[in-house]
Write a protein that binds this DNA or RNA. Structure first.
Length: 139
DNA sequence: GCCAACGTTGGC
DNA sequence: GCCAACGTTGGC
């Protein structure tokens, strides 16, 4: 099963807001980048992703699950853009900072480290395991 | 707040 | 179809 990473600025929509949505989840709206959109289109219900706070915090704070596959983004009339829906699964016991990721052997190729501007990214199995371990979760 | 990296747009 | 100009993201 593939893994993903979603970036959000916590002062706009952070983990607290995501968690507050509970089982209902929330549409991941606002993506206006083809690569990021294509990543969302590749997602399937049940896929897991990290929730990353950009700008403020700069750390991976939780895990979300895809609960609806890509569908039109209600925040635009432009048919090019669509989005998935995700729900919070659990917070990381210990958030994993960007700095920590940069230092960790095995994460050198992580999109978070290499392609800082991509807002929705794929995460490899190995990267997922490493970050989960750093975050205080068993794989 | 600055600026590097990168994506998109539009003139040719 | 190339590429310069421009806009945006996000780390610092």
């Amino acid at each position: 099963m593939p893994f993903w990473l979603f970036k959000s600025e916590p002062d706009v929509f952070g983990w607290a807001e995501q968690a507050a949505k509970g089982e209902a989840g929330e549409e991941w709206t606002g993506v206006r980048n083809y690569q990021a959109r294509n990543n969302m289109r590749a997602m399937r219900c049940g896929d897991l992703g990290f929730f990353y706070h950009s700008n403020i915090g700069k750390e991976i704070v939780g895990i979300v699950e895809v609960i609806r596959e890509s569908a039109p983004d209600s925040t635009t009339d432009d048919p090019r853009w669509d989005c998935v829906m995700v729900k919070a699964v659990r917070p990381l016991p210990r958030p994993v900072s960007l700095d920590r990721c940069k230092l960790e052997p095995g994460l050198e190729q992580m999109a978070l480290v290499k392609n800082t501007r991509l807002s929705v990214q794929p995460v490899s199995d190995a990267e997922w395991q490493i970050v989960c371990r750093l975050g205080g979760l068993e794989g």
